[in-house]
Design a protein around this nucleic acid. Sequence first.
RNA 1: GCCCGGGUGGCGGAACUGGUAGACGCGUCGGAUUCAAAAUCCGAUUCUGGUGACAGAGUGCGAGUUCGAGUCUCGCCCCGGGCACCA
Length: 817
Amino acid sequence: MDTSYRFDAIESDVQARWEAADAFRVVADDREKFYCLSMFPYPSGKLHMGHVRNYTIGDVISRYHRMCGRNVLQPMGWDAFGLPAENAAIKNGVPPAKWTRENIAAMRAQLKQLGFAYDWSREIATCDPSYYRWEQWLFTKLFEKGLVYRKESVVNWDPVDQTVLANEQVVEGRGWRSGALVEQRAIPQWFARITDYADELLDDLDQLDGWPEAVKTMQANWIGRSTGLEIDFAVAGQASESAEPLTVYTTRPDTLHGATYMALAADHPLVAARAATDPALAAFCEECRTAGTAEAELATREKKGYRLDIEAIHPLSGEALPVFVANFVLMGYGTGAVMSVPAHDQRDWEFATAYDLPIIPVVADVDGQAPDVSAAAAAEKGVLINSGEDDGKDFGAAFADIADRLEARGVARRKTQYRLRDWGLSRQRYWGAPIPIIHCDDCGPVAVPEADLPVELPEDVTPEGAGSPLPDMPEFVNVDCPACGQPARRETDTFDTFMESSWYFARFTCPDAGAMLDERADYWMAVDQYIGGIEHAILHLLYARFFQKLMRDVGLATHDEPFKALLTQGMVLKDGAKMSKSKGNTVDPQTLIETYGADTVRLFSMFAAPPDQSLEWSDAGVEGANRFLNRLWKLVAVHVEAGITAPASHAEGEAAELRRKVHETIAKVGDDVGRRYTFNTAIAAIMELVNALGRVEAAPGNALQAVRQEALEAVVAMLAPIAPHICDALWRALGHEGLVMDAAWPTADEGALVRDTLTLVVQVNGKVRARIEVPADADRDTVAETALADENVIRHIDGQRIKKTIVVPGKLVNLVV
RNA sequence: GCCCGGGUGGCGGAACUGGUAGACGCGUCGGAUUCAAAAUCCGAUUCUGGUGACAGAGUGCGAGUUCGAGUCUCGCCCCGGGCACCA
């Protein structure tokens, strides 16, 4: 055996063996299945460190479960539609299809170089018509069921480039290329009724035991189910005696007595009507419209309003309240009108302070006093004050009584509402899956019949920046209506790319199925472990959960939830910041693989931090990982030189001590890899064992030689999921045939773990003063006596009376004086 | 602004259920090897005082609960993720 570690020869040799054995192709069988999925990448051109980390985590988990005897599916594919391909086309004049497919080829080669155990026979690229035809098909089914619909919705419009911009293309209110002030335009778009599934999406979070609590909390808050009251405020005013009442929704009807004004969205019908005759109001509404609708911006922008010449009648007091148009109220959220209670809502408080409106506290603080609202609103619930007949009631009683009285008068309704909004599916872009709809003057929007699917995206096109080229392509647009046969127009919007990523996990189980899914999905689904970035905690994961339920409800799937367990990976940082080209702090995995080999890169990625935390990249740390593999290689070489033997199955004396370390390590690594997913501590434990083995003087026939054989076999097997190439080579060097990934994951020998004595810590008043050695089976009194006999302990007790003795078995003794 | 995380030596991190703070790795310093260097190997390495045994301080800041708090509670500060058309 070569005494030096030559990663390049080893990695290409081992990868050739995997290839020859077709080692990662899987089909359903009668073993327990394990479906391990890492979020597929956008094919941007080459892998970045975030990918390497994500896919190494998935590969380690996959290979571990394989060694535990499970039938493991680990597929890979490409989230191939999206904006960057269009940007590249504009910049370089390359058609997005060509650019994307070249990127896929390059990144596939890199993934193979890293040695990930993917079943490549299942590879999917979402830009292939054979893939997107099935989401087009599902869309037509949802259209039949009324689960998708068309409504007006605003987009960012660049008046110079004459195109719709994504939010990230709007920089400080201007188009990123043209620099023009971006306008908000309402256009008809397709929406999916995700709100019909809001209750199920919320309630089923309880089933997801394998998900981080943080992600479940974020999703629950995003869905935002609330129970409240919808209240009608009659309108009074010079010109609008006959106006419809203003309807608001509130979760705090207990504060109704404190409502001192109302605020309306600029797009509220009542406002629009008045703006026609009031140029100043029209100008204010225009200003509101150009301001953008991102929630963050809405929440932080300076509160501005415009007083209308109407008043709203308070449903309890009959008082006339002023009515404003406000720039922080949006028509798309709730009813487009809010009742404002400045004493108990911070946003209302800020507006009231700016416009000098009354702030009347109606909920007492914890001491039963009127809260101080001179500096901020008091949002906490409490007992009512300044509320007439409702004084003294708590939140629940006040809510119930006020709701009952208003409902009896027919001016309010109890209502459950959601923060979640329906999912806008339309994008006015080229590089996406065409929405399978044909617009007919007589029949309206008609779904493309199943026989005509897929609606293929013309690929030989290079967008030049002035919006999607599709509307300008008569051969794409002009089509006969499937219903009446008259000339009609094809829809030119494409799907949101979240559509493709909402069901790829299911398609991987049957990538060549002649339907969206087939019976193979029933065997492999649900995904047992899903791994991806925390940035997808809400949108992608919520849409995927929604799609799973849609597929179930059209009879294609049996599971309610797509992902049993979720691991959210932290970001990869360099110098404390996210790697980015603009900061110039990127690290190219390719260079590292060429310098140190895939195993070193994989090892360091897993060693530097636990998977769910951010990882600080360190070139010096990579060298350390490489050094460890070198040491391991040499250790095995020295052992093999001395002669391989049968592994030990028991040991005495010095050898027993080493053997205990071996089995302690096996127990710890099994727990860290299999349960905790803390690969960093698993690697640390393996390093400790390797360090200990390096100190052993073993000779042929020596009892230590057999223990070392046992230990090295365990080390190589346990490290194999992380550094699979070197371990595969070492496995054979240790005298085995075949691939290490077909070996069984090591199990600890309980008998080897037994200790005769334990080291306990002795504290006096909680401070460590000594360490004592006691028999493992010593009782409380023996332990306490031994502790009291220690010299340093006696000194610190200093003759004082011992008030309390706390003995924590196996850990410590605390003497309180 | 709102929702969700995080903050521990010079650095990445460990401490899993309230029980030895700093495992493992990096870096640094000292030594071995070498003509010399690289590589490799051995040793030291939280800070302060002490030759030392040892003592004191210490987990973003401030309080609290407890025999005992990095871990639990309350209030702050800072950093990161998400906020619906980036993926």
